[in-house]
Amino acid sequence: MSPTTRTRTITSLVQNESGTLNRLVSMFRRRGFSLNSLNAGDCERPGYSRVTFVIDADDGTLGQVLNQVERLIEVVEVEDITDETSVTRELVLVHLFGSDIELNRAGLECIAKGGKILTFEQGAATMELSGEPDEIEEFVANISPQLQRTVHRTGAIALHTNPWR
């Protein structure tokens, strides 16, 4: 692995058309760039989406990825915001089963991190937490091994927040 390899967060603005997302994902697969996550959703402009990608890449690969994404006709802008003034958030939903003691512990942890308890019955609970991907990682990793679980992470979404750029 090259010394410059690290996790990068890239955001882009794309025009929505038939096949747009397919085209993006197909390009990553075809060129052998592996995606940690991809997240697409509506944005402030009708007919457009913001798409956030997270990849592990060295400097050379990063440049290639940015160029190849930019090259797609529907892509209006693309930017690596890993080192920029920005916010990055991820949402996780967890559904846990097990002893109430362990469920309580997980619930307290979730609330301490700013999350919500969505359902809590005897032996089962559903929680939601959003935060920096690292926080989500930490929360999920710290859930007691005695609890059974289903976990769904959304992958990161990110926005550039530097008003003077």
Binding site: E17, S18, G19, N22, R23, S26, M27, R30, I73
Partner: peptide
């Protein structure tokens, strides 16, 4: 054919 030709076209369309 839009899906098939995705990686081998500069761009493609399905006009519905």
């Amino acid at each position: 054919i839009q899906g098939i030709s995705l990686p081998i076209t500069k761009h493609n369309y399905l006009v519905t």
